[in-house]
Design a protein around this nucleic acid. Structure first.
Lengths: 200, 200
DNA sequence: TGTAAAGTTGCAGGGAGTGCAACTATGGCA
DNA sequence: TGCCATAGTTGCACTCCCTGCAACTTTACA
């Protein structure tokens, strides 16, 4: 064993990457729905059957990095000092992801384009985000030191994901030119301060 | 024309209802995935082809009433006085739905059971909720009277849906015995007041 | 070099969902 | 009442996603 970096593992990563690249190119050219798994497999030089050993569904090729993003969020969240509020900790975690996103602006926009035009991919992305909520809520509950009343972990987690999504929406709608971490900070700050502002 | 209540329309509603009932019974008995459209069609006394004239996907049978819920939200939201804050208006709208939900506790819990065990249905429900966000955000933007800075409609809408979801989660996790509107009110109030509470 | 484990492939098949064309029922009208 | 246009139903053929299985190939390691 101990094959985390042997030839086998390296090849596997390469193949996954090759499939992803081939697929996204085809999606761009022909559209997601019009592209079949058979075509992707041919372009990536594997058999159609093998495709499903790498990705559970066609949708998942587009959303390959969601799992990594989640580990990023949880890592940063775990690293936050216990003195700061849960909300501040959440903001820091999601800003870290926002900073990562900015480094891959084009890939991100490509994904959004596909999501906007393909119901199933969009739905699946929301499902993965719901998984983030679960993980984050658990962490928040654990972060609490059991003295005093517990924070509404579920509400905090759901709100954080909602803020992140609204921020991304805002960023994309404005042409993806502004600073994403700044927008995320703004959204989190508003939510943290309270949404119930009197009219005017 | 003018056939909104003729024999034709009545029959259509009956058939839709018959399909829904047959499907949910089968889902309860055999599970969602193990039930085929063919079986549902047989139980509802229609052809498999006809099933897809009533429901776009198998998933949609479970989520049939989402569209009605949305119209309920938008109706109540439109009816809110312009003096109250956007957040108060949102709270009122979602509490109306919460009150409706409570009337159909068992049907609602059945749906949650299916969603919890079936990824695709859960994902689809989130997608429909995202549709709520769109509709609500549009309404909020329109509600604003163009004087002063516009409210962050997207953020408000996303937060409201998140609060609703967290409230439902809380309600179900606690055995669905508490008052759902009260829980919704509590969640909205917390969010409205601001989530960024200092530790202790 | 031999052997166990991991990875790949082809095959057969189930089930969702769609387009099309034929058929049937309904609603309105002369 | 009988006729016609329209709406709804059905069967058929088909595409595609995805899965289990068994045979085969490659890699790791002693």
């Amino acid at each position: 064993m101990a094959t985390d970096d042997g030839l086998r593992a390296r090849k596997k990563r390469q193949t996954a990457r090759r499939i992803e690249d081939a697929a996204l190119d085809l999606f761009d050219r022909d559209g997601f729905e019009a592209t079949t798994v058979e075509e992707i497999a041919a372009a990536a030089d594997i058999s159609p059957r093998t495709f499903f050993h790498y990705f559970a569904t066609k949708d998942d090729v587009v959303l390959a990095d969601y799992a990594e993003r989640l580990t990023r969020v949880t890592e940063v969240l775990r690293g936050q000092p216990r003195q700061i509020s849960s909300w501040q900790a959440l903001m820091a975690s999601f800003q870290a992801v926002a900073a990562d996103y900015e480094q891959e602006r084009d890939a991100l926009l490509r994904r959004f384009r596909i999501m906007a035009s393909t119901e199933s991919v969009f739905a699946r992305s929301l499902q993965l985000q719901a998984g983030w909520e679960d993980a984050v809520a658990d962490l928040l509950a654990a972060r609490h030191d059991n003295s005093g009343e517990p924070p509404p972990a579920r509400l905090l987690a759901a709100s954080a994901v909602a803020a992140m999504r609204a921020a991304l929406h805002h960023w994309v709608a404005a042409g993806a030119r502004a600073s994403l971490p700044a927008i995320v900070q703004d959204h989190f700050t508003r939510l943290g301060a309270g949404l119930d502002r009197p009219r005017r």
